[in-house]
Every structure is written in structure tokens, then in C-alpha cells.
Design a protein around this nucleic acid. Structure first.
Lengths: 196, 196
DNA sequence: GTCTATAAATAGATAGAC
DNA sequence: GTCTATCTATTTATAGAC
């Protein structure tokens, strides 16, 4: 629906309280009354967005559903595992910049989207990749390091890089690099960093 | 001043448009009129905060002013350089959580604080540490990797870790680790990751 | 389903007394 | 320096016609 689309983009740009129903209506090309016919309150509209994005958007691409990663895990091809994870993550994040922004706003404003995202997606990645690292440690391929901390370091590289691209880099040309190159380098740094 | 203090904390929690002058006045224990006597407009109050925090807070601790880091750089003690940088950054960030939050809000809302911070602090770190990495590459101690990308990876670990601590971890006990341990591990990962 | 018109509440900001 | 009272514009939300 047109209203939802423009609302997503406006909430992403300016947060919840920074976005007026008037601007949403204008951007959607309808009257404010029409907005309130579809969504009884502004909060209800916001919730509709969260529901939509939480299901359709950020959460569906669980890394272990990617056949490339599953295959690489079976073969214990560390580089392929982390490189592919990084590439998929960077591409998803850049594809849905609005969702990323919404997510950060939610985290700051303590909306429940942040909690849902944390419980449903972030913590699963920590669990899943953490157990892979633990296995490779037992096999002697990786040195002794807290798998959760290693994953935090890796996720930090990915998320921070995306955030920089989203918030700063466009137009500023600080670091002009493809997702493929970035994924390659981040995976190399982490794996050399934690290998035995 | 009491008004500034509570305004910082409220703007950090809810952003600029999410914070009303009424709530600021209440929290400061004065009337709204008093707020407007001190700061002609809400925007002016916000600017006063930015000026204050930009000078007193986040910007003053330039890493190359730390004697420990200067010394370590002269001795080419890579671990000491990056470990100390990480420790100082993590401690500063945790000390001034409100400033961090304000900074992120600013970045999203496209206020000028974000630009100031970027131009005055972030880009200097990239320059400074980038040139250190370049020197160590020439000396054969580090492999060929874009110094800016390496720094982005490292800053990503630090900022992401802080963000997680600030936004999620308190109470959730996902990753209970001291700044010292985290700094140690992040420096190890980066340096092993990019060494020759 | 959508609009015009309008209500009700809240926002930022000012006047003027103490 | 601070307060009470008030103003104006904006914001969320509703009523009712088409």
C-alpha cells in the first residue's frame, strides 16, 4: 500500500516523532483523513510497519538457509563460510537501508522491533556461528577465543561498514569499495585473527 | 547548568523532535518560561549542547595525545598501539553514553553535530592510524591491505561492541566482558588479521 | 474509499508580574 | 532569574458529505 511505503521511508529518515501524519499523507498523495481511515492512530501505522518489515524484511534471510554456507560449513571451508556470510549481510543491509535505519531508531526509542530483531535474528546468528567456531576450535583450526566475542568483532565490521556507507559515505567518497572486496577483507582479517 | 544536563539526557534518549521543552523544564525542575529565558529557542538549546559536548566531551581525547600511544608508536609496538587505542575508546564511549546516543541521533536526523564529529574526529583517526599502518606495511610488518578498510574493521569492532553494551547487554548478560579483555582480543584479531 | 472541515490536544514561544 | 498566564501554530484525530 502506498501509505505504508512512504511511511517506512519517512520514519526511517526522521524517526517516529520527527514524522508527521500530514507529511505522510502528502507524500502518499492522499488526505490525512484517509491515513486515519486505514490506521486508527499514528502508533498503529508504526506497528503495521514493524510487523511488515519484521516478517518480510530483515529476518527471512537466515544465514544457515543459504546453501552455499551450509555446504561450506560441511566442508569446514572457513573462508567460504565467513566470506559468504559477510557478502550476504552487506548486500541485505544495503538493499534495505530503510529497515536498518528503522531498526536503529527502534533501538534508541526502545520500541519492541528492536527486541524482536534481537531475539529472533541477532541472537540466532551468535548461537549458530558461535557453535561453528567452537567446533573448529576443538578441531584445532582456531585458537582459544570466546566465540561470542569473535562474532561480535565480525558483526561489528559488517554493521559498522554498512552504517558508514548509509550515513556518511555516499557523496563523501571516504572508502569506495565493493561489498565483495569488503567481505573478502573482513573475512580474511577475522580468520587470520583467530586461527591457531 | 541543570537545564543543559537534563536536556542532554533527554535528547539522548528520545532525539530532538521526540523531546519537548515541557519535559525538559519538568525534569530540570523549572518552568518552560525559564528554559526559554536561557535559550531563546529549542534549537539554540540543542546547539549549546553540541558545542559543550563537542569540546568537552567526545573530541578532546585524540588518541595521539595519549603518551602511552605516542610512545608505543615510536617503538613500533603494534599491540600496545592498538590495545591502548581500543581501551581508551571503549572507556570513553562507556563514560559518555549520552554523547554516543546523541551522536547517533544526529547522524540519523542529519544535524550538523554528525558532520562536525566526522570531520573533526573520525576522519583524523582514519588519517592518523592509516598512516601508521602504511608505515608498518612499508617496513614489512603488515601485509598489503587498504589501511582505511583495516581501520574501519577495527573501529567497527569497538563501536559495535559499545553500542551493544549500551543498547542491549545491560541486564541481558549476552557478553559479560571487561573493556580490558575486549580491547585485548580486538587488537589481537586485527593485528593477526593484517600482519605479514 | 476519499475528501473538506473541524475539533482537541500539544508544541514552541512570549508578556509581564514578582 | 523565575513564575503564571497566555498566544499561535502545529499535530493528532474525528465528523460527516460525496
Amino acid at each position: 500500500m502506498q501509505i505504508l511505503e512512504v511511511a517506512i521511508s519517512l520514519f526511517a529518515k526522521q524517526g517516529f516523532s520527527g514524522t508527521t501524519t500530514k507529511r505522510i499523507a502528502e507524500a502518499a498523495g492522499v488526505s490525512e483523513a484517509t491515513v486515519f481511515k486505514h490506521f486508527a492512530t499514528k502508533v498503529e501505522l508504526y506497528h503495521a510497519i514493524l510487523d511488515l518489515k519484521a516478517c518480510e524484511g530483515g529476518m527471512k534471510t537466515l544465514p544457515w538457509e543459504d546453501p552455499k554456507i551450509q555446504d561450506a560449513i560441511e566442508r569446514s571451508d572457513d573462508f567460504e563460510v565467513f566470506f559468504t556470510l559477510a557478502k550476504v549481510a552487506l548486500e541485505n543491509q544495503q538493499e534495505d537501508i530503510d529497515f536498518m535505519k528503522l531498526l536503529f531508531h527502534s533501538a534508541f526509542e526502545k520500541h519492541e522491533l528492536a527486541d524482536m530483531f534481537f531475539a529472533g535474528f541477532v541472537s540466532q546468528i551468535y548461537e549458530f556461528m558461535g557453535s561453528y567456531i567452537r567446533r573448529r576450535q576443538k578441531e584445532g583450526a582456531m585458537r582459544s577465543v570466546d566465540p561470542k566475542l569473535a562474532m561480535r568483532a565480525f558483526m561489528g565490521m559488517l554493521i559498522h561498514h554498512s552504517m558508514n556507507n548509509i550515513l556518511w559515505d555516499q557523496g563523501r567518497r571516504i572508502l569506495d569499495i565493493s561489498n565483495e572486496e569488503a567481505a573478502d577483507e573482513f573475512a580474511s582479517i577475522l580468520l587470520n585473527g583467530i586461527k591457531r
